[in-house]
C-alpha cells in the first residue's frame, strides 16, 4: 500500500479553484521533489495534506496508508505521522519553544497510545537533535520562532521533524532563506531521517537542494496539476530550460 495517495484532488480557496485534479503517489522510503512556478499550488497541496482550514476540497481523495486523511483533524494527522515543514513558520510569542516541543511530542504520543516522555528523556533527546542541527540551547528558551532569523526558523522546523519522527515529511521550500552552510546542515538533518519506512516530499525552486537531498522522483507542477514526473535528471532539465515548456501542457 502506498504511504500517500493523492487522487484527482480539486481544491478551492475563496471560490477559486487552485488545484484542478492533482494526482500523486508516494511510497515508503521514497524521496519526491515537487518543483513548479510561483502560484502553481505547491503550498496549497501541502496545506491541504496537513489539514489547514480555509481550503475546500471539491473532489478527489487523499489517503494515508489507505486511510482517508481528509476526515482527520490536523492533530490526528500529525499523530499518524504527517509532518509539514512550513514555508513560512509563524512566531508564537509567550509560548516557550521547549514547552511547545514537549507538549506537542507528548500529545502525539498520547494520541497513538504511547507513554509520554519523562522530562529527562525528553531533554536528552532535544539536546541530541539540536546539537546535530547546530541549534543553540538558548534559542529553545525563547518563544516559538520569536526573533528567529529566517534560517533559524527553517532549522527549527527540521528540529521538530527530527524530534517527532514522522513517516511523511513534507518540506515546503526548506531551502529558501538558508545560507550555504545552514542548507548543508539542514539537508544532513533531513538525510539522517531518511529511512526505508519514511518518505520525503521536498518542495523547492532550486536544483541545488536536490544535490544534497537526492530525489527518486521529480514532479513538475503547473497551474494546479502535476504535469510531468521523472527522475532526478528532470530537475537539471528544468534548471536549464525553465517551466515554459510545461505551461501549455497544464
Amino acid at each position: 500500500m502506498a504511504l500517500l495517495e493523492v487522487k484527482d484532488l480539486k481544491v478551492r480557496v475563496e471560490e477559486r479553484e487552485i488545484l484542478h485534479g492533482l494526482t500523486l503517489t508516494v511510497n515508503e522510503g521514497e524521496i519526491h521533489a515537487i518543483m513548479g512556478p510561483n502560484g502553481s499550488g505547491k503550498s496549497t497541496l501541502s496545506h491541504v495534506i496537513a489539514g489547514k482550514p480555509g481550503y475546500e476540497v471539491t473532489d478527489g481523495q487523499i489517503l494515508f496508508r489507505g486511510e482517508d486523511l481528509l476526515e482527520m483533524s490536523p492533530d490526528m494527522r500529525a499523530a499518524k505521522g504527517v509532518f509539514l515543514a512550513f514555508q513560512y513558520p509563524v512566531e508564537i510569542p509567550g509560548v516557550a519553544t521547549m514547552n511547545f516541543l514537549r507538549t506537542a511530542l507528548n500529545a502525539q504520543r498520547k494520541a497513538r497510545g504511547e507513554d509520554e516522555y519523562s522530562t529527562p528523556d525528553f531533554l536528552k533527546k532535544v539536546r541530541e537533535v539540536s546539537k546535530s542541527l547546530n541549534i543553540p540551547q538558548d534559542m529553545l528558551k525563547r518563544g516559538v520562532n520569536v526573533g528567529f532569523s529566517g534560517g533559524e526558523k527553517k532549522r527549527n522546523e527540521v528540529l521538530q521533524m527530527a524530534l517527532f519522527e514522522p513517516s511523511l515529511c513534507i518540506l515546503d521550500e526548506m531551502d529558501s532563506g538558508l545560507d550555504i552552510d545552514a542548507l548543508r546542515i539542514a539537508a544532513d538533518g533531513v538525510n539522517a531521517l531518511h529511512s526505508p519506512k519514511r518518505a520525503m516530499v521536498v518542495i523547492t525552486h532550486y536544483q541545488r537542494l536536490l544535490n544534497y537531498i537526492v530525489p527518486d522522483v521529480v514532479h513538475v507542477m503547473s497551474k494546479g496539476r502535476v504535469v510531468k514526473s521523472g527522475g532526478k535528471e528532470l530537475a537539471l532539465e528544468l534548471e536549464a530550460s525553465g517551466y515554459a515548456q510545461f505551461e501549455d501542457a497544464a
Partner: peptide, 18 residues
C-alpha cells in the same frame, strides 16, 4: 497560530490553552 500548533499534534483545546 492555532493551526501551527495543531499541525504539530496539539488537539484544539490544548492548542488554545497554550
Amino acid at each position: 497560530l492555532l493551526f501551527y500548533l495543531k499541525a504539530r499534534g496539539l488537539p484544539e483545546k490544548q492548542a488554545q490553552a497554550l
